[in-house]
Amino acid sequence: MPVACRMCGGPAVLKRPKTGDAVCKDCFFYAFENEVNYTITNGNLFKRGDRVAVGASGGKDSTVLAYILKLLNERHDYGIELILLSVDEGITGYRDDSLETVKRNQHQYDLPLKIVSYEDLYGWTMDAIVKQIGLKNNCTFCGVFRRQALDRGAMLLKANKIATGHNADDIAETVLMNVLRGDIARLRRCTAITTGAEGGLPRCKPLKYTYEKEIVMYAYFKKLDYFSTECIYSPNAYRGHARTYLKDLERIRPSSIIDLIHSGESLSIKKDVKMPVQGTCTRCGYISSNAICKACTLLEGLNKGLPKLAIGKSNKSRRLLDAASQSSDSTNEKTSPKEKKKDVTF
């Protein structure tokens, strides 16, 4: 005997990971879409006339995000303009394939697409970086560079907002990670639904309260076309621990994910705790806690052939890099065109 849909009484086909309710396909779509709409309207994510760059990787989150933003924009008349924005990290066998998906999405959803590449922005592909640094720590480069790359791409598109596909699981995991790493500044920021208003472009996360499982479910039942391969360079052991813990929590109590976000949202930082002051990078003008931002430091390390230096503490690597630049002028000369290029772009 089929289970009855909790919402309409018809035959249910799935159990919602978020609430545990058995629902039918249509009711699931209805709930899923309305929840995202609720998040968007109550969080005041968009204003009429906004030009929104949707971070599109070809993965499930961004595919669903692009699809649902287009759908809701039409249904509820947000009056926003959507553009897909992809970052090409230059990872053969991973990003080139997923970009194909994005290109298909461009036609399916009839949205313009812009691709910016690490190679154009920084003069390095991830493949080249991994050749230099090996499989360890390469995610640091990729993560730091992507943050800027999205902003730069969005500015090229003259967008005034960026929407990313971070889902509830991602946010909960970040809360955990920041507690485990003692990163109090990020712990405070990471649950905000819109971030980076000062400095870069404001970024928002319309899927913030949407469970990853439900996103997969939505994509599955809507037969959305997405790319689901793990990055070939990705294994980040420590984050993996946090992720496993979170998945196990969800198994024990499905509401854990949202409960963790609630916890993150209700944390306050003691007034006497010293927080890093956010300023701008003296080289590229991008938002930074130090005089020179992490991306510039990492890039300089790469260009000087000392890529490992900049992985650790920025200040320490700064000193070492400065020392290195004084001693070896030849390497400096070789890399200067790239540096110049960077200054021009931003």
Partner: peptide
């Protein structure tokens, strides 16, 4: 815009059925 409000909204949808109305929000 908070996790608890989002949860409450999810719960409220349970009862409203498949009608695309804005009143339930």
């Amino acid at each position: 815009s908070s996790a608890s409000a989002a949860t409450q909204y999810s719960m409220s949808l349970r009862k409203s059925g498949t009608v695309y109305s804005s009143s339930s929000s």
